[in-house]
Amino acid sequence: MESKNNMENVFSKLGDLKQFFVFGQKIVPVIQKIIDFMSDVVPLLENVNNSIQDSTSKIPKASTQINSVTSANEIATSEILDIIDAMFLDLSTIRTGLEELKNEENSEKIKVLNEVVSKIENDSSRITISLQVQDITAQQLASVNHLIDSVQNKLSSLLFELGKQQDRPIPTFDPASVSEQDSDYAFSDGTFNENARYDRSTEKQDLVDTLVLENTKTSQEEIDKLFAK
C-alpha cells in the first residue's frame, strides 16, 4: 500500500515536472525576444552615452566662444567710443575755427555750418547711447553661459554615473584652455541680469519715477513691511 502511494507521488511530481517543461517551452521564445531586444538596445544606449560624452566635451568650447563674442564686442565698442571722442574734439576745433572766420558777410553761412556741427554732435551722442547695447547683450550672453554651465554640470554628473559603471574617463573642463581675456567674462551668479533688454521705450523709467515718487511719500517702515510679506 505504501509502495503504491509512493509511486503515485512520483507520478504526481513527474506531472509537475512535465508541466514545468511545457511552460518552459512556451516561455523560451519570450526570453529569446527579450534577449534580442536587449542586443538591439545596448548599442543604442552606447550611442546615446557617446553623444552625451561628445556634447559635454564641446560645452566648454561653446562657453569660451560666447565669452570671446562678449570680449570682441567690448573691444569694438571701445574703438567706436574712441572714434566718437576724436570726432567731438574735431568738431570743437571746427566750431572754434568757424567763430574765428565769422564776419558780417558770412555770418549766415557760419550759422548754418554751426548748426551742422551741432547736428553731428547730437548724432554722435545718440550713437553713444545706442552703444549701451553692448553692456545689455553682455549680460544676456552671460545668462546663456550660466545656463550652459548648468547643463554641463548635469551632463557631467550623468556621465560620472555611467563612467563609474563602464570605467570610462569623464570629460572635464580645463580652465587653462580659456584665454586670460575671455576669462574676464566668466560671469558668476549675480554679475548679470538675465532680464536685461535693450528697450528704448520710457516704460521702465516711468515705473522707476512713479516708485521713487511713492517712496518719498511712503515711510521706510511701509517698504520694509512690503518686503516682509
Binding site: I129, S130, Q132, V133, D135, I136, Y198, D199, R200, K204, Q205, L207, V208, L211, V212, N215, Q220, I223, D224, L226, F227
Partner: peptide, 17 residues
C-alpha cells in the same frame, strides 16, 4: 526698483539712458 529703494539709493536710472 523697490529693493534698491529699500537699500536707500537716492534715485534710479534704467539702461539704456
Amino acid at each position: 526698483i523697490l529693493e534698491a529703494l529699500q537699500a536707500k539709493v537716492n534715485n534710479y536710472v534704467v539702461k539704456p539712458f
